[in-house]
Design a protein around this nucleic acid. Structure first.
Lengths: 223, 223, 223, 223
DNA sequence: TATGAATGAGCGTTCATTCAT
DNA sequence: CATGAATGAACGCTCATTCAT
């Protein structure tokens, strides 16, 4: 019950091998573009830079990608997928792991992933900002999804009495901002040789978001 | 004891009026550039866009600014000054206003200023990101100064026992990020017609940074 | 017997003084242009350069000269006059000074004049070359006049049996060339501090043109 | 014993043909530039002029030459080589051809070459003069080499008693000047239809430089 | 499929000239 | 007369994209 059958398995194999080769070629160009975009930024990167890095001819590039913009979009979309996969609502069902543990896990995963894909993170946080209206929409959509997850978590926290009352829109934005800034430093500004204790950073970020700055004894609002 | 005397007040007046006019002209071009840069971004903005918006001829632009880049720099530097003026260490001397009130004042001022200069904020947070190495340095320096103020405040808070122990580097980055993200939403993403209760936003941001998310009763670190 | 009479001598004086001032202003601009043109060349010299050097405003320049090209032309015309004045047919009338002495005098005068007006010489020999078709005509006319004088002298020399038979067109061109090249070195290439014994140079140039290179004993044409 | 072997002669051929085509294209642009530069001069020639004459697109020009200046330099360098090849010290070894015959050969060759490359000669003698400091250096170097050869010849002439005593610096400059001026007339000023008996011109130039103007009998210096 | 020569719209910048004050 | 702000045509150059081979 295969969806498509061919009377000629020999040609099938040839086609499959060709497609395989094509996929590899594409990946090779994508990889080169990622490196260069991260290094020089979108505008400063020329098609020449990419094809030189990929070791292909000018025309070949356009065999795999429609425009310079298209390959950039694809890189970002890839990264969006990578990140979205990790951002998942906290499970508050009975018997689930403690929420805070789950949060720690998510944050740790996000930091790990970003750090492992510093190039893409750099592109997302630096080069994709202020590119054009079309990209703004895409970015807004992505961050909107992230915010929705955070907001859902806050609302759940309110419902089960774990989280104090607050303006969800503002607070979720603050949380997103604090994480983005940490990621930015880790992925963009930190020198290559810098060593990070990602566990410690994770704990600090969580602590900041969960407990704020004040000591428990001072927990009174300003008059 | 007048600061400067001229034997020819008539010419003096003429000169003064000319300088006045020149300043106005400059401001007019700067204003046009601000609008366009905020709207289309640095790269998508052409000199033609700016002079069309300013209603001047091509050559006139170069009478007031050396290069396209120079006028952009000037806009950003202006904004840096505007912001830096407001970011000042918290005063913990006896008799000073309560620190939290001071913080509230600073945050409120920053939000006010940014909101009143949405174009510049948009340029700072979107167009100046990932522009080039020279601008990166400038930006890093600015945020470095802001971070230094936050870190100083945290250290002081530790010393006087107001703030719980934490990793100052990570925590200050989180604070900066939460404020930047709020500003970004207010200045960049919010629709023109949106109404904000800046007081309420200020309060929420402060609450988030000071108290975090958890209810007092839950104030225990995750195992 | 004055060509024009005025009923108002007071206004006459005023007019005369104004014209005098105008003439001085013109000379001042011309002098500045001469300096700059000689230094930087025609194309590299901007109107800004000239008015800065002359200490006048932009518009003032166009009060005295129609175009950048016009002031350049005027400088060259001035120099043409200066030189033409000195280039005069040799007098072979009985009782006149010996022809060779006259020649020595002329060459010496030309070298003196050119050396005293190195700026103008530099402009004539460097900047005016290959400027445009219109100027080519002017230059050709000037050198044509010089050549005519030389050719006349050669013809006269032939007639009175002083000069050996030769192709007048070619030989006069050689003579002009040898003098031009000497002038070029003196006026253009020589460092400011260099000292020249103009008398010695004059003698050498004359010797070269009159006697050529060969020793008398070798005076036989190549087979 | 073939100089290079390739496992794929088909590709080799393709590469060779492509290089051949490239060389032709380059030559075509160079040729167009030569024509226009000679006609209008460096400054009056625009890239548009060149590409129109060459029948190529704007970008194509920059595929073959880096800047407008670079193509001009290349033309001149080409010509420098062409000329330098012909200017060679006179051989005075026993058994060598008579020096005067050698000189005649050199002069004849120079005139031939220049006349055959009138465009380049025009560019060298007109457009390259007073272009900029960088080019001045280049030109000075070239003429310096030519002068050195002349001076060496003079010194040799003195040594072997063939040439009368003279100031070598001044005399060599005169010789250079006389040849340059002849070349200038032949290559730059002469109308296209003019006919020259280059042999006759050569003889006249040599005669002028060797014997000067005076008849043997008058060979006495002015008092 | 792969190539790379060719394209041309578009850019930022300059500068001789004009003209209202 | 003198000023200098304003003008705009023209320049050299770049680079994403196309297409014949």
């Amino acid at each position: 019950m295969s969806s498509s059958q061919s009377p000629n398995p020999k040609i099938d194999g040839r086609v499959r091998r060709a497609q395989q080769k094509r996929r590899e070629r594409r990946a090779q160009v994508l990889e080169a573009a990622r490196r260069i975009f991260a290094q020089k930024g979108y505008h400063a990167t020329s098609i020449t830079d990419i094809i030189d890095a990929a070791g292909i001819a000018r025309g070949t590039f356009y065999l795999y990608f429609d425009t310079k913009r298209a390959i950039f979009d694809e890189l970002l979309d890839l990264f969006f997928q990578l990140l979205t996969r990790e951002v998942r609502p906290v499970d508050v069902a009975p018997g689930a792991r403690p929420p805070v543990e789950q949060l720690a896990g998510i944050v740790r995963h996000v930091l790990d992933t970003l750090f492992a894909n510093r190039d893409l993170a750099r592109i997302l946080l630096r080069e994709a900002v202020g590119l054009d209206a079309e990209f703004d929409r895409k970015l807004a959509e992505f961050y909107g999804r992230v915010l929705a997850v955070i907001q859902h978590a806050l609302a759940t926290g309110h419902r089960i009495g774990l989280v104090r009352r607050c303006n969800i829109a503002v607070t979720s934005t603050c949380i997103l901002g604090s994480v983005k800034e940490i990621v930015y430093h880790l992925a963009v500004e930190a020198d290559v040789g810098d060593l990070f204790d990602l566990d410690a950073v994770t704990r600090e970020v969580l602590d900041f978001n969960l407990y704020g700055l004040f000591l428990p004894g001072d927990r009174k609002l300003p008059a």
